[in-house]
């Protein structure tokens, strides 16, 4: 036991070193966003001479950054809404009503968990092309919805099955319609599971690059990660602006993560356990 304090000190030191390795690159990214090229090249480790938003305002006025950000917001929000609403509806039917094809429907959704949809990109491309959905936000939204439904049906079915039948039954005796029972009695109880399903899908959709790369070609429809590649090419020699772009692109999800870190970590690591 005598060695414990020393050993703990050593482990703590290593953890602090690790935290530094994880955070310092992001710190440099943010600091460089305030620097001019000359400053970045001459003194990469120094703090910026001033915290002026020159680079950020150039991004704002000279590039389509805002447009990319809006596209990402629209696509992610619409896909998550569809995943949670349609996923909850299907899960509710599977979990709360005994019908003949219930387990078949459940298996059909679950099979989607095993399929890496990215490898089906060619038939998806042809499918979207035949529906006139190539180079549209709706096409992306529908593909993301299909990608997210299996996990949300899985999580919500599991959760809805655990709810006691008494509540439902007493509402039914009082003559409430099935719709009212679902919306007013059962679903308010399922909110935690809906949050998990939303978070688990929101992060990969927000960050996705592959589907927009293949499906979206108009500049005005590009999402943030995709727009970033356009912009990194254009400002290739202007490192201050590049770092400002990376910082601004990382900012939205970082802020949400800091506010809700516990839910994010739980949502994403639980998703892996399936």
């Amino acid at each position: 036991m005598r060695g414990e304090p020393i050993k703990h000190g050593l482990i703590q030191a290593l953890l602090i070193l690790n935290a530094f390795v994880m955070l310092y690159p992001l710190f440099v990214m943010v600091m460089s966003a305030f620097k001019s090229n000359a400053e970045i090249f001459a003194s990469p480790f120094a703090l910026p001479e001033s915290f002026a938003f020159t680079n950020a305002s150039r991004m704002w006025s000279e590039t389509s950054f805002i447009l990319y950000l809006l596209n990402s917001l629209i696509v992610t929000a619409a896909a998550i809404a569809a995943i949670v609403v349609f996923g909850t509806m299907a899960a509710y039917a599977i979990a709360r009503y005994p019908f003949r094809l219930s387990s078949a429907a459940f298996m059909f959704f679950l099979a989607g968990l095993m399929v890496p949809l990215k490898l089906a990109i060619i038939p998806l491309f042809i499918q979207l092309d035949s529906l006139g959905l190539i180079d549209t936000r709706l096409g992306l939204i529908l593909v993301y919805t299909a990608m997210g439904l299996p996990s949300s049906v899985f999580i919500l079915t599991g959760f809805l099955r655990t709810l006691p039948g008494e509540l439902e039954e007493s509402a039914r005796i009082e003559g409430a319609s099935e719709l009212r029972i679902m919306l007013q009695v059962m679903l308010p109880l399922a909110r935690p599971a809906m949050v998990i399903a939303a978070i688990q899908n929101a992060v990969p959709i927000w960050n996705d690059f592959f589907f927009p790369l293949v499906f979206i070609s108009s500049d005005r429809l590009k999402t943030l990660p995709q727009g970033l590649t356009v912009f990194m090419g254009e400002y290739n020699t202007d490192w201050g602006v590049l770092f400002a772009g990376l910082t601004l692109a990382a900012l939205p999800i970082t802020l949400v993560y800091i506010a809700l870190s516990r839910q994010f970590i739980a949502g994403l690591t639980q998703g892996a356990g399936k």
């Binding site: 299907a90 059909f108 989607g112 399929v115 949809l117 299909a146």
Partner: peptide, 20 residues
């Protein structure tokens, strides 16, 4: 309740996968 979910899964997962 099941229709929208099943429809999206059929058009954007099952059909493309079989075609691939």
């Amino acid at each position: 309740l099941l229709a929208p979910g099943l429809a999206i899964m059929t058009v954007f997962v099952a059909a493309p996968l079989l075609s691939s």
